[in-house]
């Protein structure tokens, strides 16, 4: 899937805005994933998955670092994430549907913390001034898909 310049700009702007909160929000997204989609817990039998668990935080930080890496390589995502892709697909055998679950939870988390940025009321978007994207939700969704 091609990523327009506008999508890339939106993702980068959001990441910059989050700053040091990336780990905090990714932790919340992961906790939401485990609550809303309990089947995702089957991949973590070795971890303490209760809210506030330091192991969940540690894993969320790994996810946050991977997402940050992705934002730095939006022009060449497949290459920059190939090691992680191999790990999840071949070694861990993670069903792709689980990434959709996490993606939804991350978007919900960001919408909670940045409601203004997740406004759907941007005239430019719906009037076609911004092709293919109008808010962070779209840009991030594109990146996570």
């Amino acid at each position: 899937m091609a990523r327009s310049q506008d999508d890339q700009w939106l993702v980068l702007a959001l990441w910059k805005k989050m700053g040091s909160n990336v780990g905090i929000y990714t932790t919340e997204a992961l906790e939401r994933t485990f609550v809303a989609f309990p089947s995702t817990k089957t991949y973590f039998p070795h971890l303490d998955l209760r809210p506030g668990s330091s192991q969940v935080k540690a894993h969320a930080q790994k996810v946050a670092d991977a997402l940050t890496l992705a934002t730095q390589h939006l022009d060449d995502l497949p290459a920059s994430l190939s090691a992680l892709s191999d790990l999840h697909a071949h070694k861990l055998c993670v069903d792709p549907a689980n990434f959709q679950f996490f993606s939804c939870c991350l978007l919900v988390t960001l919408a909670r913390h940045y409601p203004g940025d997740f406004s759907g009321e941007k005239d430019a978007c719906l009037l076609g001034h911004v092709s293919g994207s109008c808010d962070f939700c779209t840009g991030l969704q594109v990146m996570l898909n």
Binding site: E31, R32, V35, A36, F37, P51, C104, C105, L107, V108, T109, A111, R112, H113, P115, F118, S119, G120, C137
Partner: peptide
Amino acid sequence: SHCLLVTMAARFPADFTPEVHEAWDK
């Protein structure tokens, strides 16, 4: 459904706890 959940989270950030999220997703 996904877009509704994001809209709810943006409009009711304090109310949209993981438990509310789970119940509404279901």
